[in-house]
Deep mutational scan, measured.
Amino acid sequence: MAAAAAAGAGPEMVRGQVFDVGPRYTNLSYIGEGAYGMVCSAYDNVNKVRVAIKKISPFEHQTYCQRTLREIKILLRFRHENIIGINDIIRAPTIEQMKDVYIVQDLMETDLYKLLKTQHLSNDHICYFLYQILRGLKYIHSANVLHRDLKPSNLLLNTTCDLKICDFGLARVADPDHDHTGFLTEYVATRWYRAPEIMLNSKGYTKSIDIWSVGCILAEMLSNRPIFPGKHYLDQLNHILGILGSPSQEDLNCIINLKARNYLLSLPHKNKVPWNRLFPNADSKALDLLDKMLTFNPHKRIEVEQALAHPYLEQYYDPSDEPIAEAPFKFDMELDDLPKEKLKELIFEETARFQPGYRS
């Protein structure tokens, strides 16, 4: 834990890192770190609560700039109880001085990944967590956004079992017609939660990839272990087919990539493993919904509104309290091709509203 900075004593240090967030945020305490930044909790002297502050230093890398800009653009436009918001952003007053960006968010005690390492969940908890994931996802999908990296560590939890989806750095506007060349190379989302079509096709992607990830998360809540822990690309596919069985001819016809289709045709026939054999203690309604989410063919996979209306979630289902976005989200430009200098300018502009004396 960093010592509390005395008023006016300059930035606090946390594990050798400068955290320049005073005077409003003090009493910093280390939480963890990701690929390009550290997260601390801090005391907000204005709202009198502890908050989470993520320090991001992305400006050396085009990919990190892209992810940072995506996350900020999306989260500043989203407003939903099951999606983490941005409360404040701290950065230098000029673009030349801006080396880091500090993002202030609600402090959540833990995440689903940490929880599943230590606790076996009751059916009631599984049901409530799944409902909140789908409630947040309904809003995301209504904005025409794909999260693309749903996994237990991106689901934040607090002691009252509130759940918030975080990390929109890989999110995209849904565009089933656009052929994202190089899709697989830039697709760094965790393999275990990846839909089979991501490994088999490169053309376009749809909201059904997020539903697949939610199915993987439900299976993990039922058993405290990942359902498809593939060691590499082909191993991942083999794990999936080992449980779902061989795809039907109709399902194979959806695979545009001939090499991928021929690979699947070359494999020995596998039978589907019954879900109640894998999860003998699970609620039968939970397994019915799991089956509809972990469907090989993305066109037959359940959609988020149908999933919310499934009998497993009937005690929570309330369409009048499951809000959607006001308007579909649009990125003005494809960020993939922009140089990091341009992305830095866009991050600077996007964060201006939090600067003292800002006038829109």
Rank of each mutant, 00 (worst) to 15 (best):
F59C: 08
L134S: 01
L267N: 14
K340F: 07
P196N: 04
I255K: 10
P11S: 04
L313N: 09
L346Y: 08
N262Q: 07
Y36H: 09
V46E: 12
G16P: 07
V101D: 05
L76H: 14
A325G: 14
L237M: 06
I83A: 15
I324G: 13
D283M: 14
G204C: 10
D111G: 07
L264T: 09
H125W: 04
K151S: 08
G136Q: 05
S284L: 06
V214N: 01
R191G: 03
A7K: 15
G169T: 11
P339K: 05
H310G: 05
N123K: 00
R301F: 07
D210S: 05
N253V: 05
Y312D: 03
G10N: 12
D100V: 01
L121P: 08
E322Y: 15
Q355S: 06
A307Y: 12
T185W: 03
K300I: 10
F129E: 05
G242C: 00
K207F: 07
L234E: 06
H147L: 00
S320A: 12
D251Q: 09
E220S: 04
A219G: 06
P226G: 04
Y193K: 02
R135P: 06
Q119N: 15
N281C: 12
L146G: 05
R277D: 03
Y316N: 00
L146I: 13
Y317A: 13
K231P: 09
R15W: 01
R79F: 09
G357V: 00
A5H: 11
N276V: 13
G32R: 05
L76C: 13
A309V: 13
Y139A: 10
D251G: 03
N224S: 02
V101H: 04
L241S: 03
Q17L: 02
S153C: 01
L112E: 07
S41A: 08
W212E: 01
R50C: 12
L163V: 13
D291F: 07
T190W: 04
P152A: 05
D167F: 06
H232Q: 01
A7P: 13
A171L: 02
Y113N: 00
G245D: 02
E12P: 15
N281K: 05
D332M: 09
F19H: 03
R77G: 13
F296W: 13
A189Y: 06
H61G: 08
H269K: 07
D175F: 09
K114M: 05
T68L: 07
R225A: 06
V273Y: 12
S213R: 00
I95H: 10
R194C: 02
L75G: 13
I133M: 10
E349M: 14
Q66A: 06
A327P: 09
I255M: 09
D179I: 11
D111S: 07
M293I: 00
K207Q: 03
S122K: 10
A189G: 09
D235M: 05
V51L: 13
A189L: 02
L130W: 07
V145W: 05
A3C: 07
M221W: 08
K344F: 09
I74A: 05
A260M: 12
K270L: 11
L170H: 03
D20P: 05
P339A: 08
Q119H: 03
P226F: 07
V49W: 10
N87H: 09
H178T: 05
D235S: 07
Y316K: 11
K207T: 03
D149Y: 00
G182D: 09
L116H: 11
L200F: 10
E109G: 11
A9T: 08
H310R: 04
M108I: 00
W275M: 02
Y25V: 12
E197T: 04
V173Y: 09
H269Y: 08
P93D: 12
E322G: 12
P247A: 03
S142H: 14
L163C: 13
M199E: 05
L287V: 14
Y317I: 12
A286F: 14
I140L: 02
W275N: 03
S266T: 15
P328S: 05
A352E: 05
S320Y: 01
Q105D: 09
Y205F: 00
L157N: 04
H120L: 00
V304M: 09
L265T: 11
N82Q: 08
D177N: 02
R172W: 05
I255C: 06
I133P: 06
Y131M: 14
M221P: 02
V101P: 08
M221D: 02
L76I: 15
Q97A: 09
D177T: 11
I90Q: 15
A307G: 08
H269A: 14
P152R: 02
E71I: 07
T206H: 02
L163F: 11
N224I: 00
Y193M: 03
C166E: 03
L121R: 08
K285D: 13
D106V: 05
I165D: 03
K285S: 13
M333K: 00
F348G: 08
F279Y: 02
P311Y: 09
R70A: 05
I243T: 11
E96Y: 14
S248H: 13
L156Y: 03
N158F: 08
F296N: 04
L237N: 04
I56E: 11
I86Q: 08
D283V: 02
R353C: 12
S284C: 10
E33N: 14
S29Y: 14
N271G: 13
N154G: 03
V18P: 11
N262F: 13
S142P: 07
S248D: 12
M98T: 12
R24K: 13
V14E: 06
M221I: 00
A35D: 01
I83F: 00
P152G: 11
H269V: 10
G85D: 03
I211R: 01
T159I: 05
Y30K: 08
A6M: 07
P319E: 08
A286Q: 14
M199D: 03
A92Y: 15
R191L: 00
A3S: 04
G204I: 07
R24V: 10
A307M: 10
P176W: 05
I198A: 08
I302A: 05
I324T: 14
L287S: 04
Y102E: 07
S122R: 01
I302L: 02
A35W: 07
D321R: 09
Y193D: 02
L75K: 10
I198E: 04
V14R: 09
Y312M: 09
V14G: 00
F129I: 00
K138T: 10
L308D: 05
M108F: 14
I324S: 07
I90C: 15
F354L: 02
K73N: 00
Y316L: 10
I126P: 06
L130N: 06
E60Y: 15
A3Q: 13
E326V: 01
L237E: 02
G37T: 02
T68H: 12
R79Q: 10
G136D: 07
I347H: 08
R24E: 09
K330P: 12
N154T: 01
N271Y: 02
V304C: 11
Y43H: 12
A9Q: 06
R77N: 10
A92T: 03
M333N: 10
L112W: 09
W192V: 02
R50M: 01
F19T: 06
L134Q: 00
I140S: 03
L313G: 03
P11L: 01
L289T: 03
M38W: 09
N201Q: 10
G204W: 01
T26V: 08
S284G: 12
V173G: 03
C127L: 04
E350S: 15
Y263F: 00
L134M: 00
I240E: 07
F329Q: 09
P274T: 01
D210G: 06
L112Q: 00
L156I: 13
I90W: 15
S153A: 11
E96R: 14
F168A: 09
S213A: 11
R261G: 05
I302D: 03
N82S: 07
N201V: 09
A327Y: 15
V188E: 03
I256G: 12
V304Y: 13
L75N: 15
I86H: 11
R225M: 12
V18Q: 09
I90A: 15
Y43W: 12
S29Q: 14
P268K: 11
C127W: 10
T185M: 03
C254S: 00
F354P: 13
E220R: 02
M108T: 07
M38D: 09
R277F: 12
H125S: 02
D283N: 01
K54I: 01
D179P: 08
G16F: 13
V101W: 06
S248V: 09
I89A: 11
I227P: 10
D175Y: 00
T206F: 04
V104H: 09
V145R: 05
E220F: 05
S248K: 11
D318I: 11
I255L: 05
Y233N: 00
T159E: 04
L258V: 10
F168L: 00
A189I: 09
T351E: 07
I31H: 13
